[in-house]
């Protein structure tokens, strides 16, 4: 009933961040349907969208905080927590499954769980458009084809 005064959800979410998020939103506000471009830019800037960013974005874009929250929660790309040091994303879609993606994914998860890869998140993705050269994946954003467990171990060696 009153505008909820959100407290910053994390240490980084201070006044500087709020001003920057506002500036990002204002930069895009005259576009049609500006919310996704704004979220992308906040992600590019901070790696995640903080709960405290939501009312700021909503205010600039003439949206309710609830609407922004709904959108944030819909898209897999929109992180709401600070990102890990490393991200390994492995394709689990059919074409890659046809060449062993499931066992690769399982092995990677196991390795991550064992702590051997440091602060690494192993994600599943569905199709990177590299279906003739599977198993595919990205390692810290770099696209790779014909991946196997050995190659992955080599690529992530030394991660803490």
């Amino acid at each position: 009933m009153s505008t909820p005064t959100s407290t910053p959800a994390s240490p980084e979410a201070g006044p500087d961040r709020s001003a920057l998020v506002r500036a990002v939103a204002e930069h895009h506000r005259d576009q049609r349907g500006p919310l996704l471009p704004v979220l992308h830019e906040v992600l590019a800037e901070f790696g995640y969208v903080d709960a405290a960013d939501v009312p700021v974005i909503a205010d600039v874009l003439n949206l309710s905080a609830a609407e922004v929250h709904g959108v944030v929660s819909f898209y897999h790309d929109v992180r709401t927590t600070p990102p890990p040091t490393h991200v390994v994303a492995l394709c689990r879609a059919e074409a890659c499954q046809a060449v062993g993606a499931e066992s690769l994914y399982a092995a990677a998860q196991e390795r991550a769980a064992s702590g051997e890869m440091g602060d690494t998140e192993v994600q599943q993705v569905f199709c990177l458009g590299n279906c003739a050269l599977g198993p595919s994946g990205t390692v810290d954003g770099r696209l790779l084809g014909r991946l196997d467990a050995a190659r992955l171990t080599e690529l992530t060696a030394g991660w803490r």
Binding site: Q31, G33, L36, P37, Y75, D77
Partner: peptide
């Protein structure tokens, strides 16, 4: 001509979801 980037949602390949997403909504 404008380029708009999705955010990780297969369903946004369905044309009406894509339009919702272009409008900045849940897909």
């Amino acid at each position: 001509l404008h380029v708009r980037v999705g955010a990780g949602a297969y369903i946004c390949g369905e044309e009406s979801s894509m339009l919702e997403s272009l409008e900045g909504k849940r897909g």
